[in-house]
Design a protein around this nucleic acid. Structure first.
Lengths: 171, 171
DNA sequence: CCTGCACCTACGAAATCCGTGACGATTGGA
DNA sequence: TCCAATCGTCACGGATTTCGTAGGTGCAGG
């Protein structure tokens, strides 16, 4: 009964400029569904439906589509320390030539959890997750710095992780 | 029927050096459960049980404990671009005095998704997620640089995110 | 020896998931 | 204007899963 999120479709015939990358057909209802699943990835479809004003089946189909499209994924995230990875670092990389092959090589390393091309004094930034100091040293000194195109690196070893959320859209 | 992960308890009376930070050991079976949920956070308990060699109820109780202890959480993660956040940056911060209050202030900002204290030429590193350039500029120039204790900052605007996984333990 | 504790299994009831068919609204073209 | 195609939603029943609870076992401490 409780309306609230009515008129979601008719309210927005064309979307507010779809000039973005390529796939932003995300209406307010889907956003609300994502917020629900960011609070609890296992929340039942019926409960989500009640919260966003949709039937269970509708929620289920939307969630399935969001997953298929790769817009979101539902996963377990863990505290690296508790699973045995005691050394982490952010590594800034200065490179020369085409950055793509370098980035691809970094992406292929399982220890690199996060690879991003940046503007600024670094060309690439990589988050490295390792078991101990020896492991970290090996990854940075033997593997990353050995890549062709890598000119130099600068490491920032993590002392304390203060915040880590996954709440885009939940603002 | 298929054994495989038998004798999980008796096999390891003390663990291979539990000199870790302080959290509990986390045995091989829980690790395997986490791996299953990292592939699909909604996988049914029975399916997980079959994969790791436990009953449905046992898996359910272990998962519940892992969630309660904060060892892991099951959440939806999204591609920031698709949800309308088009500018991201890593910000390195030079600070003076006690770092904790600075880190706490950063943590309180919803735009800061990731806050970590580091060793190296930066004292703190922060990942900022914003809607557009104006938003990013405001957060960095007006909010972060205005914090007491912040001496200077350096920004690395994201050009292309190449990799982002949540696969600790799945190596 | 026995008590307490942590962990696992077993099992029935309730809730959830999933496939399917139908209905209403919107779109594009004759 | 009208018609057909498409998309999103709802309704519903059966299979599956979840959930609470009761009972059994191995281990450490008294």
């Amino acid at each position: 009964m409780q309306s609230e999120v009515v008129a979601s479709r008719s309210a927005d015939p064309k979307g507010p400029r779809s000039r973005s990358g390529g796939s932003p057909p995300l209406d307010a209802v889907s956003l609300a569904i994502i917020e629900q699943l960011q609070e609890d990835g296992r929340r039942p479809y019926a409960a989500i439906g009640k919260a966003v004003g949709l039937s269970e089946a509708a929620v289920r189909q939307r969630v399935q589509k969001l997953l298929d499209q790769g817009v979101m994924q539902i996963v377990a995230v863990t505290d690296p320390l508790t699973v045995g990875f005691r050394r982490q670092a952010m590594v800034g990389i200065h490179a020369e030539g085409d950055l793509d092959p370098v980035a691809d090589a970094l992406t292929a390393m399982p220890e690199c959890e996060y690879v991003v091309m940046t503007a600024g004094s670094f060309d690439l930034m990589v988050e490295v997750v390792c078991e101990d100091d020896d492991h970290l040293l090996e990854v940075i000194n033997q593997r990353i710095r050995a890549l062709p195109g890598v000119r130099s690196t600068e490491s920032f070893v993590y002392l304390k992780l203060k915040k880590q959320t996954y709440m885009w859209g939940t603002r």
